Amino acid sequence: MEVVILTVGDEVLAGDTTNTNATWLAKQVTDRGATVARILTVPDDCAVIERVVREWSAAFDAVIVTGGLGGTPDDVTADAIADAFGRDLAVDPTVREDVLETVAAYREANPETIEAHDVDIDVDAWAALPAGSRPLINPEGLCPGCVLENVYAFPGVPAEMRALFEQVAGEFGGDTVSMTLHTPQPEGSMVDALTTVREQFDVTVGSYPSGTELNRLKITGTDADAVERAARWLGEHVAITDAPDGAAAERD
């Protein structure tokens, strides 16, 4: 399963917000055996989001979009996804009721804030999703997410994004397995060994040097036995600190 991740937000592109969502989602997806083929951040621009969603939906198994959902003027993701599939926005009664309940709970818990700032929430604007999409009720906040065909849309607030992803996590999977080994050996001294292990066992090996810690070697493939054998082979040809026989390697 090939998955792509699209994060939306001017604040991410400006460096005002760290893109922890993409990193967290990528790990969740790969831990389930799927492959992340692309990660891209785009601005709060409806036309740009629409184009990327339309192209990626046709090219990959699943598209995860996070950010830009809600009822403020810069929240254009729902409109863009609707446009990508030729849909209108619609308000699902269940979603609207949840938004009303969330607003009521906030008013009850924060009466002074409500009074001081004259908070008036457009419930329909916050509850609107692409017509025909599967709503994802948000247990952590106001804004719902949704699934439309192979596109999964989550709010950008990390706690809310994670809560909604957990609702659909079982829909992501694949045959990819990986193992991580650690070595004190300099990257430049392992070129021949890394080339040979890739060719001999039909796996990919990523080398990730560290200036202060042990360097990492991540072995990835679709055959768990081949990955194990590749790890054992590397243990015989590279100075592996944690798994010279492949048995104690860190499983991802």
Rank of each mutant, 00 (worst) to 15 (best):
D175W: 00
T113K: 11
T20H: 09
T102I: 07
T41M: 01
D225P: 03
A82M: 04
W126N: 15
K27R: 14
A34P: 02
E50M: 01
D245S: 13
G15Q: 08
T220I: 00
D61S: 10
A47V: 00
N19V: 10
V42C: 09
G141R: 05
G71H: 04
D175G: 09
G246D: 07
S57L: 03
T30H: 01
T222N: 14
T20C: 08
A226M: 10
G211K: 00
P73Y: 11
Y208V: 01
V203I: 06
N215A: 10
V4H: 09
G86I: 01
T102Q: 08
I39N: 13
V177E: 13
A248G: 15
R54I: 00
R51A: 14
A224L: 02
A249D: 13
F201M: 04
H117M: 14
Q28E: 15
P184S: 07
A58P: 05
E11C: 08
A58V: 02
V147N: 13
E199A: 14
E166C: 02
E11K: 03
G141H: 08
G68F: 04
V197H: 12
T196D: 15
V42A: 11
L136S: 09
G67W: 06
M179K: 14
F172N: 06
A224S: 14
E101T: 15
V119C: 07
T72I: 04
R134E: 15
V36K: 07
R216D: 15
T196A: 15
G67I: 04
D83W: 00
T23A: 15
E166G: 05
A14E: 11
D252G: 11
V76E: 13
Q185E: 15
R198M: 12
T17M: 10
T212K: 02
V95K: 05
V52T: 05
V238M: 08
I137E: 14
E11Q: 06
D124L: 02
L89E: 08
T113G: 10
R32L: 14
A58R: 10
G188A: 01
N138L: 10
E2Y: 07
E187L: 04
V103D: 08
V227R: 06
A82D: 09
R32Y: 12
D175V: 00
D242M: 03
Q185M: 06
T72P: 06
R38A: 15
A78K: 03
T222R: 11
Q200D: 14
C46K: 06
G221V: 00
V168M: 06
